[in-house]
Amino acid sequence: MIRINHINKSFANTVVLHDISAEFEPGKTNLTIGASGSGKTVLLKTLVGLHEADSGEIWYDDTLFNRLPFDQKKNMRKRIGMLFQGAALFDFATVEENVMFPLTMFTDQSYAEKRERVDFCLKRVNLINAEKRYPAELSGGMQKRVGIARAIALNPSYLFCDEPNSGLDPNTAILIDNLIHEITQEYHITTIVNTHDMNSVMEIGDKVMFIHQGHKWWEGSSNDILRSDNQELNDFVFASSMTKQFRALSNK
């Protein structure tokens, strides 16, 4: 479980996050939605400590993460997996080496053991026969999948995904969504996913938080979202004419 209390974050003169508090439960896929530029990525990076919060508390279970000294924070990070918006694969390494990297750095496993784990993770994300290729030779969707494989290699307790399915075709997007959802339940991971894809919200959103211009604007389950009368949320959710018509129909 991850709990954040009154998180504020600003860059130079612009305030990006305003007093955000929330709870993210384990075994559930917690979604953060919001328009482009609303602060989702900044929130995620603040949670994992890539940005330092100006004020507020970030609790990982019973640990006050954002006050940990460098060494302990480093240890904690071995239990964190993260998929970046741009995958952030190491381009000096092949797919296999990318997924193996955290294993090499933090376990004493033999090459065969590591190999086995890598195979398992890559199979899990439906990626076969790509071990020896370099990230530059992969499509965007394949890179995302390698990113997820790398993030889950060490069996993380906390998984962060920044727009795992942006830029993917609908089928692959659903595949990745479901994958994240499945491993979250299977390994009882505390998962936080940033997205602005309403499909994902309806498919896998156990709990949804809507960020509007850096404020936590709304929170609830994916079922509540369609019935909410929050103006900004509705503008976001029913942005396309198709969804608007859908809503009109279902309200009749």
Partner: peptide
């Protein structure tokens, strides 16, 4: 950042 996140 990805390295830092892993704790490297």
């Amino acid at each position: 950042d990805a390295m830092e996140i892993m704790g490297v």
